[in-house]
Amino acid sequence: MQIFVKTLTGKTITLEVEPSDTIENVKAKIQDKEGIPPDQQRLIFNGKQLEDGRTLSDYNIQKDSTLHLVLR
C-alpha cells in the first residue's frame, strides 16, 4: 500500500509499505529515499509519536495515510 510522509519543509515522500511493516522498517525506507538516519527521525500520526517496535496496523495506518516526519 502507499503512504505519504510529510516533512517540515513541506516536501511529501511517497512510500510503498505493508500494514505489517514496523515503524523501524518505515524509517529505513525514508533513509533509503532521503538519506536521513533513522535515529534522527520521529514519525507522528494523528498527533501520536510512533514507536519503532510497533507496526503500521497497530496504529491503524491505512493506505494513503499521511505521517509527519520531525527531525531531532
Rank of each mutant, 00 (worst) to 15 (best):
residue 22 T to R: 11
residue 15 L to P: 00
residue 11 K to A: 03
residue 69 L to A: 02
residue 72 R to F: 04
residue 16 E to Q: 09
residue 59 Y to Q: 02
residue 68 H to K: 02
residue 24 E to K: 02
residue 58 D to L: 04
residue 61 I to E: 00
residue 20 S to W: 10
residue 49 Q to N: 06
residue 23 I to H: 05
residue 26 V to L: 14
residue 18 E to V: 09
residue 32 D to A: 13
residue 63 K to I: 11
residue 61 I to A: 07
residue 8 L to F: 09
residue 54 R to Q: 07
residue 22 T to S: 04
residue 1 M to W: 13
residue 32 D to G: 05
residue 14 T to R: 09
residue 45 F to N: 03
residue 52 D to Q: 12
residue 70 V to T: 09
residue 27 K to F: 14
residue 24 E to T: 11
residue 41 Q to H: 07
residue 67 L to F: 03
residue 69 L to W: 08
residue 67 L to W: 01
residue 68 H to N: 04
residue 51 E to R: 13
residue 26 V to E: 00
residue 42 R to M: 11
residue 12 T to A: 07
residue 37 P to R: 05
residue 17 V to W: 02
residue 3 I to T: 01
residue 40 Q to R: 14
residue 61 I to R: 00
residue 21 D to E: 15
residue 15 L to M: 03
residue 25 N to D: 02
residue 72 R to D: 14
residue 9 T to D: 10
residue 10 G to V: 06
residue 14 T to K: 05
residue 44 I to N: 06
residue 2 Q to T: 07
residue 51 E to G: 03
residue 24 E to V: 02
residue 9 T to A: 04
residue 7 T to V: 12
residue 44 I to S: 02
residue 4 F to I: 11
residue 49 Q to A: 11
residue 14 T to N: 07
residue 15 L to T: 01
residue 67 L to Y: 01
residue 59 Y to H: 14
residue 62 Q to D: 09
residue 51 E to S: 02
residue 26 V to Y: 00
residue 49 Q to D: 14
residue 23 I to N: 04
residue 18 E to F: 11
residue 68 H to T: 03
residue 63 K to H: 12
residue 61 I to D: 00
residue 66 T to V: 05
residue 43 L to H: 01
residue 63 K to L: 13
residue 11 K to Y: 11
residue 34 E to T: 06
residue 64 D to I: 14
residue 46 N to W: 03
residue 44 I to T: 04
residue 47 G to W: 08
residue 42 R to V: 13
residue 6 K to Q: 11
residue 52 D to I: 09
residue 27 K to M: 14
residue 10 G to T: 13
residue 36 I to F: 06
residue 29 K to E: 06
residue 7 T to Q: 15
residue 53 G to D: 11
residue 32 D to M: 12
residue 53 G to V: 10
residue 47 G to F: 06
residue 70 V to W: 03
residue 57 S to G: 14
residue 61 I to M: 02
residue 55 T to A: 08
residue 41 Q to N: 04
